[in-house]
């Protein structure tokens, strides 16, 4: 029901106020971890909602330097960037093949990838560990690339497949008529059209990979190969946790995700170069 139809001017105001309240509710948790990270441990213990008495950045120093967060940062960045690049490339290839061509195994392959979205990761941990040990893939700098890429593939494939199908096939045909190669068609014509979908994929893949926990926990053991979420467990003690340092570490760890979101979201909004697809 549109707002305009349903409500008068005052109604519109109420509605806008509600939206604003909702948005505030979305910002509050971020604000909360930011200001909590500036409190002392004792302050937080006594009251977890109140504002800090005095700003102090000690927690950040503790998290970044003492907790060696920079090390986990590097590892996470390497794994995440690699994963995002490879996933975008591979999923685009698969989605293109699945959406544009009819072949014998097409539906089979499509379902084959669906399966991947329904598997509880913890169910894969034990067999995967054995496999990685067997093949000498355990605890190497590239160890996490494989599972990260594989587990992130399905969603982008579906998103892109459904997106490409909305792009009229006549476009491809016309390009072929003009003598364009498949690779030219894919990279120069289709890819720009898919920009909003790809931006979505970049954001989601980045987010999920950046936060991934079980694979990183089990498949690597050297400190320098562990990723941020595993590094964050250092702020939990056996019986008590250092919450304020944890908050500082969390603030640092969500910054890259925020940055990627804000950068790529613009791409979604700007949308496709209108006109290219008009049938």
């Amino acid at each position: 029901m549109t707002v305009r139809m349903l409500l008068g001017k005052s109604g519109k105001l109420v509605f806008n106020a509600m939206m604003l309240a909702f948005s505030v509710a979305c910002v509050f948790p971020i604000a909360w971890i930011v200001y909590s990270s500036l409190k002392t441990k004792d302050e937080f213990m006594l009251n977890s909602v109140s504002l800090p008495h005095r700003l102090q950045f000690h927690n950040y120093y503790k998290a970044f330097v003492d907790g060696k967060m920079y090390q986990y940062f590097i590892s996470s960045a390497l794994n995440t960037v690699t994963t995002v690049v490879v996933v975008v490339f591979l999923s685009f290839c698969v989605a293109y093949a699945l959406s544009r061509f009819r072949f014998k195994w097409r539906n089979g392959i499509y379902s084959y990838f669906i399966v991947g979205m329904l598997i509880p990761v913890y169910g894969l941990i034990v067999p995967l560990y054995l496999q990685f040990k067997q093949f000498g893939l355990y605890d190497k700098f590239y160890t996490l690339f494989l599972p990260y890429i594989a587990i992130r593939l399905p969603l982008p494939i579906f998103l892109l497949e459904s997106f490409i199908r909305t792009v009229p096939a006549e476009l491809d045909e016309a390009a072929h008529m003009d003598g364009a190669s498949t690779s030219y068609l894919m990279t120069r014509i289709l890819l720009p059209i898919c920009k909003p979908a790809i931006a979505t994929i970049v954001i989601l893949t980045f987010l999920d990979t950046w936060n991934e926990f079980p694979f990183s926990l089990v498949l690597v053991s050297q400190e320098s190969l562990k990723t941020l979420p595993v590094g964050l467990t250092n702020f939990y003690g056996q019986f008590t946790s250092d919450y304020t340092t944890l908050m500082a570490a969390m603030v640092l760890s969500i910054l890259p995700v925020m940055a990627v979101y804000l950068a790529f979201y613009k791409n979604i909004i700007q949308g496709m170069t209108a006109g290219a697809v008009k049938g």
Partner: peptide, 22 residues
């Protein structure tokens, strides 16, 4: 040394290693 601060995470890894006799 390998250190994992969180109990749940620690025992998850330990049991994975145990299952593989490793």
């Amino acid at each position: 040394e390998e250190s994992i601060g969180d109990q749940n995470a620690y025992y998850t890894k330990l049991k994975t290693l145990a299952a593989s006799n490793d």
